[in-house]
């Protein structure tokens, strides 16, 4: 009955998300999003020449910095949605003690202001511990309601983790995009 279990998890996650943290959108928004045709982030990958179509995506990059990973405008957080693990006792790609990384992630393409290159970032929820609550960074560009889960943010991305309880989100570097 994996089907119902999965469904249960989704519902649980959705309601938990909405109840606990009004708008944590750690979704695959980014995932599909990246590629999606209407969301900003999504356009980026397609627009590697610097022709960034979306005003809001462009705004993120214009304000992005490469020094402080505990601030929402740190470049790797272009498709972030959640509490920064760097503010919760974890690192850019490590979970705080007591929480475990989910095997699944959502993906974003972010421009590094330090070298002007696009990188693929895997946003990974750390799970199994109560919500951290520090440094909420919410990207709402291109967000869709829950019935379009690939572009909705109100889903804790703890698939495959031991627990579906969301703690924070880390942003690991995957490689050049």
């Amino acid at each position: 009955m994996r089907g119902s279990r999965l469904l249960d998890r989704w519902v649980e996650r959705a309601s938990r998300g909405m109840a606990q943290r009004t708008s944590r959108r750690g979704l695959l928004a980014r995932l599909g999003a990246l590629v999606a045709g209407g969301a900003l982030l999504p356009l980026l990958p397609v627009d590697r020449s610097g022709r960034i179509n979306s005003a809001r995506a462009q705004a993120f990059f214009e304000n992005a910095q490469a020094e402080d990973p505990t601030a929402c405008n740190y470049w790797r957080y272009c498709a972030m949605d959640g509490y920064l693990c760097t503010c919760c006792g974890g690192g850019l790609h490590t979970c705080p003690p007591g929480s475990d990384p989910a095997p699944t992630s959502w993906v974003g393409s972010c421009l590094n202001p330090a070298d002007g290159q696009l990188y693929l970032i895997a946003y990974r929820d750390c799970c199994g511990k109560g919500v951290c609550g520090q440094c909420p960074c919410l990207s709402t560009e291109g967000e869709m309601p829950i019935y379009r889960p690939q572009l909705s943010n109100d889903i804790a991305w703890c698939f495959g983790a031991r627990s579906m309880v969301y703690h924070c989100t880390a942003a690991a570097l995957v490689g050049r995009a």
């Binding site: 695959l28 980014r30 995932l31 990246l34 989910a102 095997p103 993906v107 693929l120 698939f159 995009a177």
Partner: peptide, 27 residues
């Protein structure tokens, strides 16, 4: 650098199916 079809995979599928293709248990 990832390009072409691999890039489409990495941006659309990899988050959940993972780069190693192992997926996620029960999900």
């Amino acid at each position: 650098m990832v390009e072409g079809v691999a890039q489409d995979f990495s941006r659309n599928c990899q988050g959940c199916h993972r780069a190693d293709g192992l997926g996620a248990c029960n999900a």
